[in-house]
Design a protein around this nucleic acid. Sequence first.
DNA 1: CGCTAAATGAAACTGGAGTCCCGTTATGGC
DNA 2: GCCATAACGGGACTCCAGTTTCATTTAGCG
Lengths: 224, 224
Amino acid sequence: MAVESAEPGTTRPGGRTARVREAVLRAAGDALAEQGFAHLDLADVARRADVGKTTVYRRWGTVTGLVADLLKDMAEQSLPRTETGSLLGDLKANARLVHRTLTDPRQGELFKALIAAATCDTRTADALHHFYRTRIEEWAPCVRQAVGRGEVPAGTDPHEVIRAVSAPLYYRLLASGDPLDQAAADRAAEAAAAAARAGAYVRHAAPEGMTGQARTEDSQQADG
Amino acid sequence: MAVESAEPGTTRPGGRTARVREAVLRAAGDALAEQGFAHLDLADVARRADVGKTTVYRRWGTVTGLVADLLKDMAEQSLPRTETGSLLGDLKANARLVHRTLTDPRQGELFKALIAAATCDTRTADALHHFYRTRIEEWAPCVRQAVGRGEVPAGTDPHEVIRAVSAPLYYRLLASGDPLDQAAADRAAEAAAAAARAGAYVRHAAPEGMTGQARTEDSQQADG
DNA sequence: CGCTAAATGAAACTGGAGTCCCGTTATGGC
DNA sequence: GCCATAACGGGACTCCAGTTTCATTTAGCG
Protein backbone atom coordinates (compact mmCIF):
# COMPACT_ATOMS: atom_id res chain seq x y z
CA MET A 1 0.00 0.00 0.00
CA ALA A 2 1.05 3.67 0.17
CA VAL A 3 2.08 5.48 -3.00
CA GLU A 4 4.75 3.38 -4.74
CA SER A 5 7.10 6.28 -5.61
CA ALA A 6 6.08 6.09 -9.30
CA GLU A 7 7.40 3.50 -11.77
CA PRO A 8 10.73 1.76 -11.19
CA GLY A 9 13.41 2.87 -13.61
CA THR A 10 12.33 6.50 -13.64
CA THR A 11 14.49 8.05 -10.93
CA ARG A 12 17.71 6.26 -11.90
CA PRO A 13 17.38 5.57 -15.61
CA GLY A 14 21.12 5.37 -16.32
CA GLY A 15 23.74 2.65 -16.08
CA ARG A 16 22.48 -0.77 -15.21
CA THR A 17 18.81 0.19 -15.48
CA ALA A 18 19.34 1.19 -19.11
CA ARG A 19 21.33 -1.95 -19.87
CA VAL A 20 18.62 -4.11 -18.33
CA ARG A 21 15.93 -2.38 -20.36
CA GLU A 22 17.86 -2.86 -23.57
CA ALA A 23 18.53 -6.54 -22.89
CA VAL A 24 14.95 -7.22 -21.88
CA LEU A 25 13.43 -5.46 -24.89
CA ARG A 26 15.74 -7.33 -27.24
CA ALA A 27 14.87 -10.64 -25.56
CA ALA A 28 11.18 -9.79 -25.69
CA GLY A 29 11.40 -9.14 -29.43
CA ASP A 30 13.18 -12.45 -29.97
CA ALA A 31 10.69 -14.37 -27.87
CA LEU A 32 7.69 -12.73 -29.55
CA ALA A 33 9.07 -13.49 -32.99
CA GLU A 34 9.78 -17.12 -32.11
CA GLN A 35 6.78 -18.07 -30.00
CA GLY A 36 4.10 -15.52 -30.74
CA PHE A 37 2.11 -13.39 -28.35
CA ALA A 38 0.09 -16.16 -26.70
CA HIS A 39 3.00 -18.29 -25.55
CA LEU A 40 5.11 -15.43 -24.26
CA ASP A 41 6.28 -15.97 -20.69
CA LEU A 42 8.01 -13.15 -18.83
CA ALA A 43 10.21 -15.60 -16.96
CA ASP A 44 11.49 -16.85 -20.31
CA VAL A 45 12.20 -13.29 -21.40
CA ALA A 46 14.14 -12.73 -18.18
CA ARG A 47 16.16 -15.89 -18.80
CA ARG A 48 17.00 -14.82 -22.37
CA ALA A 49 17.99 -11.35 -21.17
CA ASP A 50 20.08 -12.83 -18.36
CA VAL A 51 18.11 -10.79 -15.87
CA GLY A 52 16.16 -11.71 -12.75
CA LYS A 53 12.54 -12.49 -13.47
CA THR A 54 11.55 -10.34 -10.49
CA THR A 55 12.94 -7.33 -12.34
CA VAL A 56 10.88 -8.02 -15.43
CA TYR A 57 7.69 -8.48 -13.43
CA ARG A 58 8.35 -5.39 -11.33
CA ARG A 59 9.15 -3.03 -14.19
CA TRP A 60 6.77 -4.26 -16.87
CA GLY A 61 4.28 -6.37 -14.98
CA THR A 62 2.42 -7.91 -17.90
CA VAL A 63 3.11 -9.12 -21.40
CA THR A 64 1.14 -6.25 -22.91
CA GLY A 65 3.00 -3.74 -20.73
CA LEU A 66 6.30 -5.08 -22.01
CA VAL A 67 5.10 -4.95 -25.61
CA ALA A 68 3.97 -1.36 -25.10
CA ASP A 69 7.46 -0.42 -23.95
CA LEU A 70 8.99 -2.31 -26.86
CA LEU A 71 6.80 -0.32 -29.24
CA LYS A 72 7.82 2.93 -27.58
CA ASP A 73 11.42 1.94 -28.15
CA MET A 74 10.80 0.96 -31.77
CA ALA A 75 9.00 4.22 -32.49
CA GLU A 76 12.09 6.18 -31.47
CA GLN A 77 14.26 4.56 -34.13
CA SER A 78 13.66 6.71 -37.19
CA LEU A 79 14.56 5.46 -40.64
CA PRO A 80 15.58 7.04 -43.91
CA ARG A 81 13.01 7.51 -46.61
CA THR A 82 13.86 6.91 -50.26
CA GLU A 83 13.19 9.59 -52.89
CA THR A 84 12.83 8.60 -56.52
CA GLY A 85 11.34 11.70 -58.10
CA SER A 86 7.92 10.25 -58.90
CA LEU A 87 4.97 9.38 -56.69
CA LEU A 88 4.76 5.85 -58.03
CA GLY A 89 8.47 5.32 -57.49
CA ASP A 90 8.30 6.59 -53.92
CA LEU A 91 5.22 4.55 -53.08
CA LYS A 92 6.76 1.47 -54.59
CA ALA A 93 9.89 1.97 -52.51
CA ASN A 94 7.68 2.27 -49.44
CA ALA A 95 5.64 -0.79 -50.41
CA ARG A 96 8.77 -2.87 -50.92
CA LEU A 97 10.16 -1.75 -47.58
CA VAL A 98 6.98 -2.84 -45.84
CA HIS A 99 6.92 -6.03 -47.86
CA ARG A 100 10.49 -6.86 -46.94
CA THR A 101 9.75 -6.25 -43.27
CA LEU A 102 6.59 -8.32 -43.15
CA THR A 103 8.12 -11.26 -45.04
CA ASP A 104 11.31 -11.27 -42.99
CA PRO A 105 11.07 -14.34 -40.74
CA ARG A 106 11.83 -12.47 -37.53
CA GLN A 107 10.21 -9.11 -38.23
CA GLY A 108 7.08 -10.53 -39.80
CA GLU A 109 6.31 -12.72 -36.81
CA LEU A 110 7.24 -9.87 -34.50
CA PHE A 111 4.80 -7.47 -36.12
CA LYS A 112 2.03 -10.05 -35.96
CA ALA A 113 2.70 -10.47 -32.26
CA LEU A 114 2.81 -6.71 -31.65
CA ILE A 115 -0.55 -6.27 -33.32
CA ALA A 116 -2.04 -9.20 -31.45
CA ALA A 117 -0.87 -7.68 -28.17
CA ALA A 118 -2.36 -4.33 -29.09
CA THR A 119 -5.80 -5.90 -29.53
CA CYS A 120 -5.76 -6.91 -25.86
CA ASP A 121 -4.78 -3.71 -24.08
CA THR A 122 -5.49 -0.04 -24.71
CA ARG A 123 -2.10 1.24 -23.57
CA THR A 124 -0.40 -1.16 -25.95
CA ALA A 125 -2.79 -0.11 -28.67
CA ASP A 126 -1.90 3.53 -28.07
CA ALA A 127 1.79 2.70 -28.40
CA LEU A 128 1.13 0.83 -31.64
CA HIS A 129 -0.91 3.70 -33.06
CA HIS A 130 1.86 6.13 -32.19
CA PHE A 131 4.37 3.87 -33.93
CA TYR A 132 2.36 3.85 -37.14
CA ARG A 133 1.58 7.56 -36.96
CA THR A 134 5.33 8.16 -36.86
CA ARG A 135 6.01 5.91 -39.85
CA ILE A 136 3.16 7.34 -41.89
CA GLU A 137 4.33 10.89 -41.18
CA GLU A 138 7.84 9.91 -42.25
CA TRP A 139 6.56 9.02 -45.71
CA ALA A 140 3.86 11.67 -46.08
CA PRO A 141 6.23 14.23 -47.67
CA CYS A 142 6.45 12.20 -50.87
CA VAL A 143 2.75 12.74 -51.41
CA ARG A 144 3.07 16.46 -50.67
CA GLN A 145 5.83 16.63 -53.25
CA ALA A 146 3.59 14.87 -55.75
CA VAL A 147 0.90 17.46 -55.08
CA GLY A 148 3.50 20.16 -55.69
CA ARG A 149 4.48 18.53 -58.99
CA GLY A 150 0.83 18.34 -60.00
CA GLU A 151 0.84 14.53 -60.11
CA VAL A 152 -2.18 14.34 -57.81
CA PRO A 153 -4.97 16.84 -57.07
CA ALA A 154 -4.52 19.57 -54.47
CA GLY A 155 -6.13 18.65 -51.16
CA THR A 156 -5.03 15.02 -51.38
CA ASP A 157 -4.56 13.64 -47.87
CA PRO A 158 -0.96 12.37 -47.66
CA HIS A 159 -1.58 10.05 -44.73
CA GLU A 160 -4.47 8.42 -46.55
CA VAL A 161 -2.25 7.62 -49.51
CA ILE A 162 0.53 6.14 -47.39
CA ARG A 163 -1.95 4.04 -45.43
CA ALA A 164 -3.39 2.81 -48.72
CA VAL A 165 0.01 1.40 -49.65
CA SER A 166 0.51 -0.56 -46.42
CA ALA A 167 -3.07 -1.65 -45.87
CA PRO A 168 -3.29 -4.43 -48.49
CA LEU A 169 -0.03 -5.93 -47.26
CA TYR A 170 -1.17 -5.99 -43.63
CA TYR A 171 -4.52 -7.36 -44.73
CA ARG A 172 -2.76 -10.30 -46.33
CA LEU A 173 -0.45 -10.81 -43.37
CA LEU A 174 -3.18 -10.74 -40.74
CA ALA A 175 -6.50 -11.58 -42.32
CA SER A 176 -6.74 -13.19 -45.76
CA GLY A 177 -3.44 -15.05 -45.78
CA ASP A 178 -3.03 -14.47 -49.51
CA PRO A 179 0.55 -14.58 -50.80
CA LEU A 180 2.60 -11.61 -49.67
CA ASP A 181 5.03 -11.33 -52.56
CA GLN A 182 6.75 -8.39 -54.19
CA ALA A 183 4.15 -8.30 -56.96
CA ALA A 184 1.52 -7.67 -54.28
CA ALA A 185 3.63 -4.83 -52.91
CA ASP A 186 4.01 -3.27 -56.34
CA ARG A 187 0.29 -3.61 -57.00
CA ALA A 188 -0.48 -1.91 -53.69
CA ALA A 189 1.72 1.02 -54.67
CA GLU A 190 0.24 1.22 -58.16
CA ALA A 191 -3.31 1.09 -56.86
CA ALA A 192 -2.63 3.80 -54.29
CA ALA A 193 -1.01 6.00 -56.93
CA ALA A 194 -3.87 5.44 -59.38
CA ALA A 195 -6.51 6.19 -56.75
CA ALA A 196 -4.61 9.28 -55.62
CA ARG A 197 -4.37 10.54 -59.19
CA ALA A 198 -8.12 10.00 -59.59
CA GLY A 199 -8.73 12.19 -56.54
CA ALA A 200 -10.03 9.44 -54.27
CA TYR A 201 -8.01 10.77 -51.33
CA VAL A 202 -8.98 14.44 -51.57
CA ARG A 203 -9.82 15.63 -48.08
CA HIS A 204 -13.32 16.78 -47.09
CA ALA A 205 -15.30 14.94 -49.75
CA ALA A 206 -15.85 17.45 -52.56
CA PRO A 207 -19.37 18.96 -52.25
CA GLU A 208 -20.43 17.70 -55.68
CA GLY A 209 -19.49 15.47 -58.55
CA MET A 210 -16.32 13.73 -57.41
CA THR A 211 -17.10 11.51 -54.45
CA GLY A 212 -20.25 9.86 -53.22
CA GLN A 213 -23.52 9.36 -54.96
CA ALA A 214 -24.84 5.81 -54.47
CA ARG A 215 -27.27 6.29 -51.59
CA THR A 216 -28.54 2.72 -51.62
CA GLU A 217 -29.76 1.42 -48.29
CA ASP A 218 -28.02 -1.90 -47.75
CA SER A 219 -28.77 -5.12 -45.92
CA GLN A 220 -28.93 -5.40 -42.16
CA GLN A 221 -26.74 -8.49 -41.92
CA ALA A 222 -23.41 -7.99 -40.20
CA ASP A 223 -20.14 -9.32 -41.48
CA GLY A 224 -16.45 -8.62 -42.03
CA MET B 1 -2.41 -44.45 -24.13
CA ALA B 2 -3.73 -46.45 -27.13
CA VAL B 3 -5.35 -44.70 -30.06
CA GLU B 4 -7.89 -42.18 -28.71
CA SER B 5 -10.73 -43.07 -31.13
CA ALA B 6 -10.32 -39.73 -32.99
CA GLU B 7 -11.79 -36.41 -31.83
CA PRO B 8 -14.72 -36.36 -29.41
CA GLY B 9 -17.92 -35.17 -31.00
CA THR B 10 -17.31 -36.91 -34.31
CA THR B 11 -19.06 -40.26 -33.89
CA ARG B 12 -22.16 -38.85 -32.18
CA PRO B 13 -22.47 -35.30 -33.44
CA GLY B 14 -26.22 -34.97 -32.86
CA GLY B 15 -28.41 -34.07 -29.90
CA ARG B 16 -26.58 -32.95 -26.81
CA THR B 17 -23.19 -32.79 -28.51
CA ALA B 18 -24.54 -30.28 -31.02
CA ARG B 19 -26.25 -28.24 -28.30
CA VAL B 20 -23.04 -28.13 -26.28
CA ARG B 21 -21.05 -27.01 -29.30
CA GLU B 22 -23.53 -24.25 -30.06
CA ALA B 23 -23.59 -23.01 -26.47
CA VAL B 24 -19.81 -23.11 -26.13
CA LEU B 25 -19.16 -21.30 -29.41
CA ARG B 26 -21.66 -18.61 -28.50
CA ALA B 27 -20.08 -18.21 -25.05
CA ALA B 28 -16.62 -18.14 -26.59
CA GLY B 29 -17.66 -15.33 -28.92
CA ASP B 30 -19.11 -13.37 -26.02
CA ALA B 31 -16.04 -13.85 -23.88
CA LEU B 32 -13.66 -12.95 -26.70
CA ALA B 33 -15.61 -9.79 -27.46
CA GLU B 34 -15.71 -8.75 -23.81
CA GLN B 35 -12.24 -9.69 -22.59
CA GLY B 36 -10.11 -10.08 -25.68
CA PHE B 37 -7.94 -12.98 -26.71
CA ALA B 38 -5.31 -12.69 -23.96
CA HIS B 39 -7.66 -12.92 -21.00
CA LEU B 40 -9.77 -15.74 -22.35
CA ASP B 41 -10.12 -18.62 -19.92
CA LEU B 42 -11.73 -21.86 -21.04
CA ALA B 43 -13.20 -22.44 -17.57
CA ASP B 44 -14.98 -19.11 -17.90
CA VAL B 45 -16.33 -20.10 -21.30
CA ALA B 46 -17.61 -23.33 -19.80
CA ARG B 47 -19.34 -21.41 -17.00
CA ARG B 48 -20.99 -19.03 -19.50
CA ALA B 49 -22.13 -21.93 -21.65
CA ASP B 50 -23.42 -23.80 -18.60
CA VAL B 51 -21.26 -26.75 -19.51
CA GLY B 52 -18.64 -28.70 -17.60
CA LYS B 53 -15.15 -27.31 -18.03
CA THR B 54 -13.85 -30.83 -18.59
CA THR B 55 -15.94 -30.95 -21.75
CA VAL B 56 -14.47 -27.75 -23.11
CA TYR B 57 -10.92 -28.88 -22.41
CA ARG B 58 -11.55 -32.32 -23.88
CA ARG B 59 -13.17 -31.18 -27.12
CA TRP B 60 -11.22 -28.00 -27.85
CA GLY B 61 -8.18 -28.21 -25.63
CA THR B 62 -6.75 -24.75 -26.17
CA VAL B 63 -7.98 -21.22 -26.71
CA THR B 64 -6.72 -21.19 -30.28
CA GLY B 65 -8.38 -24.54 -30.95
CA LEU B 66 -11.69 -23.12 -29.78
CA VAL B 67 -11.25 -20.01 -31.91
CA ALA B 68 -10.48 -22.17 -34.92
CA ASP B 69 -13.76 -24.03 -34.44
CA LEU B 70 -15.61 -20.75 -33.96
CA LEU B 71 -14.19 -19.51 -37.26
CA LYS B 72 -15.23 -22.73 -38.97
CA ASP B 73 -18.74 -22.13 -37.69
CA MET B 74 -18.75 -18.49 -38.78
CA ALA B 75 -17.52 -19.38 -42.26
CA GLU B 76 -20.54 -21.64 -42.76
CA GLN B 77 -23.01 -18.81 -42.26
CA SER B 78 -23.33 -17.30 -45.71
CA LEU B 79 -24.74 -13.81 -46.19
CA PRO B 80 -26.60 -12.00 -48.93
CA ARG B 81 -24.67 -9.67 -51.19
CA THR B 82 -26.18 -6.37 -52.31
CA GLU B 83 -26.38 -5.48 -55.98
CA THR B 84 -26.65 -1.85 -57.03
CA GLY B 85 -25.87 -1.99 -60.75
CA SER B 86 -22.54 -0.16 -60.62
CA LEU B 87 -19.13 -1.23 -59.37
CA LEU B 88 -18.79 1.79 -57.10
CA GLY B 89 -22.23 1.19 -55.63
CA ASP B 90 -21.47 -2.46 -54.96
CA LEU B 91 -18.07 -1.77 -53.45
CA LYS B 92 -19.53 0.96 -51.30
CA ALA B 93 -22.19 -1.43 -50.04
CA ASN B 94 -19.46 -3.92 -49.21
CA ALA B 95 -17.32 -1.27 -47.52
CA ARG B 96 -20.22 -0.11 -45.38
CA LEU B 97 -21.04 -3.68 -44.39
CA VAL B 98 -17.45 -4.21 -43.27
CA HIS B 99 -17.44 -0.82 -41.57
CA ARG B 100 -20.63 -1.59 -39.69
CA THR B 101 -19.24 -4.92 -38.54
CA LEU B 102 -15.90 -3.59 -37.38
CA THR B 103 -17.43 -0.64 -35.52
CA ASP B 104 -20.11 -2.74 -33.84
CA PRO B 105 -19.08 -3.00 -30.18
CA ARG B 106 -19.35 -6.76 -30.01
CA GLN B 107 -18.32 -7.75 -33.54
CA GLY B 108 -15.42 -5.31 -33.74
CA GLU B 109 -13.82 -6.63 -30.59
CA LEU B 110 -14.58 -10.17 -31.65
CA PHE B 111 -12.82 -9.76 -34.98
CA LYS B 112 -9.79 -8.24 -33.29
CA ALA B 113 -9.64 -11.24 -30.98
CA LEU B 114 -10.05 -13.72 -33.83
CA ILE B 115 -7.18 -12.14 -35.73
CA ALA B 116 -5.01 -12.03 -32.62
CA ALA B 117 -5.66 -15.73 -32.06
CA ALA B 118 -4.80 -16.52 -35.66
CA THR B 119 -1.35 -14.95 -35.26
CA CYS B 120 -0.52 -17.55 -32.59
CA ASP B 121 -1.51 -20.83 -34.21
CA THR B 122 -1.37 -22.11 -37.77
CA ARG B 123 -4.59 -24.14 -37.59
CA THR B 124 -6.44 -21.05 -36.39
CA ALA B 125 -4.77 -19.01 -39.11
CA ASP B 126 -5.95 -21.54 -41.70
CA ALA B 127 -9.50 -21.23 -40.40
CA LEU B 128 -9.30 -17.44 -40.55
CA HIS B 129 -7.96 -17.51 -44.11
CA HIS B 130 -10.75 -19.82 -45.15
CA PHE B 131 -13.28 -17.46 -43.58
CA TYR B 132 -11.96 -14.51 -45.58
CA ARG B 133 -11.60 -16.51 -48.77
CA THR B 134 -15.30 -17.35 -48.45
CA ARG B 135 -16.30 -13.71 -47.89
CA ILE B 136 -14.11 -12.41 -50.71
CA GLU B 137 -15.50 -15.01 -53.10
CA GLU B 138 -19.03 -14.01 -52.08
CA TRP B 139 -18.41 -10.46 -53.31
CA ALA B 140 -16.15 -11.22 -56.27
CA PRO B 141 -19.08 -11.49 -58.73
CA CYS B 142 -19.71 -7.74 -58.57
CA VAL B 143 -16.28 -7.16 -60.05
CA ARG B 144 -16.86 -9.79 -62.74
CA GLN B 145 -20.10 -8.02 -63.63
CA ALA B 146 -18.22 -4.73 -63.83
CA VAL B 147 -15.77 -6.32 -66.23
CA GLY B 148 -18.73 -7.52 -68.28
CA ARG B 149 -20.18 -4.01 -68.34
CA GLY B 150 -16.81 -2.63 -69.42
CA GLU B 151 -16.40 -0.55 -66.26
CA VAL B 152 -12.98 -2.05 -65.58
CA PRO B 153 -10.40 -3.67 -67.89
CA ALA B 154 -10.61 -7.33 -68.80
CA GLY B 155 -8.27 -9.47 -66.71
CA THR B 156 -8.96 -7.49 -63.54
CA ASP B 157 -8.55 -9.80 -60.55
CA PRO B 158 -11.86 -9.71 -58.65
CA HIS B 159 -10.39 -10.90 -55.36
CA GLU B 160 -7.77 -8.18 -55.48
CA VAL B 161 -10.45 -5.51 -55.80
CA ILE B 162 -12.54 -6.85 -52.93
CA ARG B 163 -9.49 -7.12 -50.70
CA ALA B 164 -8.61 -3.53 -51.58
CA VAL B 165 -11.96 -2.40 -50.15
CA SER B 166 -11.56 -4.15 -46.80
CA ALA B 167 -7.84 -3.62 -46.34
CA PRO B 168 -7.84 0.06 -45.33
CA LEU B 169 -10.57 -0.59 -42.78
CA TYR B 170 -8.73 -3.48 -41.18
CA TYR B 171 -5.53 -1.44 -41.24
CA ARG B 172 -7.23 1.24 -39.19
CA LEU B 173 -8.81 -1.27 -36.83
CA LEU B 174 -5.62 -3.21 -36.15
CA ALA B 175 -2.63 -1.05 -36.90
CA SER B 176 -2.91 2.71 -37.29
CA GLY B 177 -5.92 3.32 -35.07
CA ASP B 178 -7.15 6.12 -37.32
CA PRO B 179 -10.87 6.86 -37.11
CA LEU B 180 -12.98 4.10 -38.64
CA ASP B 181 -15.98 6.12 -39.83
CA GLN B 182 -18.32 5.76 -42.75
CA ALA B 183 -16.37 8.36 -44.72
CA ALA B 184 -13.34 6.09 -44.47
CA ALA B 185 -15.44 3.19 -45.76
CA ASP B 186 -16.68 5.24 -48.71
CA ARG B 187 -13.17 6.40 -49.52
CA ALA B 188 -11.93 2.79 -49.45
CA ALA B 189 -14.60 1.84 -51.98
CA GLU B 190 -13.89 4.85 -54.18
CA ALA B 191 -10.16 4.23 -54.13
CA ALA B 192 -10.61 0.56 -55.02
CA ALA B 193 -12.97 1.46 -57.85
CA ALA B 194 -10.62 4.14 -59.19
CA ALA B 195 -7.61 1.84 -59.05
CA ALA B 196 -9.58 -0.96 -60.72
CA ARG B 197 -10.67 1.37 -63.51
CA ALA B 198 -7.05 2.41 -64.01
CA GLY B 199 -6.09 -1.25 -64.47
CA ALA B 200 -4.04 -1.57 -61.29
CA TYR B 201 -5.58 -4.98 -60.54
CA VAL B 202 -5.09 -6.62 -63.93
CA ARG B 203 -3.75 -10.10 -63.37
CA HIS B 204 -0.29 -11.25 -64.55
CA ALA B 205 1.36 -7.83 -64.79
CA ALA B 206 0.98 -6.81 -68.43
CA PRO B 207 4.22 -7.52 -70.33
CA GLU B 208 4.68 -3.86 -71.18
CA GLY B 209 3.42 -0.36 -70.48
CA MET B 210 0.80 -0.74 -67.79
CA THR B 211 2.41 -1.98 -64.59
CA GLY B 212 5.91 -1.87 -63.21
CA GLN B 213 8.81 0.23 -64.39
CA ALA B 214 10.62 1.86 -61.47
CA ARG B 215 13.54 -0.49 -60.89
CA THR B 216 15.19 1.61 -58.21
CA GLU B 217 17.26 -0.30 -55.68
CA ASP B 218 16.15 0.89 -52.28
CA SER B 219 17.62 1.14 -48.77
CA GLN B 220 18.55 -1.86 -46.69
CA GLN B 221 16.80 -0.68 -43.55
CA ALA B 222 13.85 -2.77 -42.40
CA ASP B 223 10.58 -1.37 -41.21
CA GLY B 224 6.82 -1.69 -41.33
C1' DC C 1 35.46 8.78 -2.31
C1' DG C 2 31.50 7.60 0.68
C1' DC C 3 26.67 7.67 1.71
C1' DT C 4 21.69 6.75 0.60
C1' DA C 5 18.25 4.58 -1.43
C1' DA C 6 16.85 2.99 -6.16
C1' DA C 7 17.08 -1.02 -8.56
C1' DT C 8 18.26 -5.77 -9.05
C1' DG C 9 18.14 -10.85 -8.01
C1' DA C 10 17.66 -15.45 -5.56
C1' DA C 11 14.46 -18.17 -3.37
C1' DA C 12 10.29 -19.31 -1.09
C1' DC C 13 5.44 -18.96 -1.72
C1' DT C 14 0.62 -19.02 -3.76
C1' DG C 15 -3.42 -19.32 -6.64
C1' DG C 16 -5.63 -20.71 -10.45
C1' DA C 17 -5.36 -22.67 -15.25
C1' DG C 18 -5.29 -27.04 -17.13
C1' DT C 19 -5.39 -32.42 -16.19
C1' DC C 20 -7.11 -36.72 -14.47
C1' DC C 21 -10.38 -40.00 -12.53
C1' DC C 22 -14.50 -42.03 -12.50
C1' DG C 23 -19.47 -42.01 -12.05
C1' DT C 24 -23.64 -40.34 -14.87
C1' DT C 25 -26.30 -39.18 -18.97
C1' DA C 26 -28.23 -39.94 -23.37
C1' DT C 27 -27.09 -40.88 -28.51
C1' DG C 28 -27.35 -44.01 -32.27
C1' DG C 29 -28.16 -48.53 -33.83
C1' DC C 30 -30.73 -52.61 -33.52
C1' DG D 1 -37.83 -50.18 -26.18
C1' DC D 2 -32.96 -51.76 -25.00
C1' DC D 3 -28.06 -52.02 -25.01
C1' DA D 4 -23.29 -50.50 -25.72
C1' DT D 5 -20.63 -46.77 -25.41
C1' DA D 6 -19.77 -41.85 -26.82
C1' DA D 7 -19.94 -37.83 -24.56
C1' DC D 8 -20.68 -35.11 -20.43
C1' DG D 9 -19.78 -33.33 -15.54
C1' DG D 10 -18.17 -32.90 -10.71
C1' DG D 11 -14.32 -32.81 -8.02
C1' DA D 12 -9.61 -33.86 -6.66
C1' DC D 13 -5.00 -33.05 -8.16
C1' DT D 14 -0.78 -30.94 -10.32
C1' DC D 15 2.21 -27.64 -11.95
C1' DC D 16 3.92 -23.37 -13.10
C1' DA D 17 3.08 -18.26 -14.05
C1' DG D 18 3.12 -14.54 -11.23
C1' DT D 19 3.94 -12.53 -6.30
C1' DT D 20 6.27 -11.55 -2.11
C1' DT D 21 10.40 -11.21 0.85
C1' DC D 22 14.61 -9.75 1.84
C1' DA D 23 19.56 -9.50 0.96
C1' DT D 24 22.90 -7.47 -2.52
C1' DT D 25 24.46 -4.31 -5.96
C1' DT D 26 25.09 0.19 -7.87
C1' DA D 27 23.43 4.85 -9.71
C1' DG D 28 23.34 9.46 -8.39
C1' DC D 29 24.84 13.10 -5.53
C1' DG D 30 27.59 15.76 -2.40
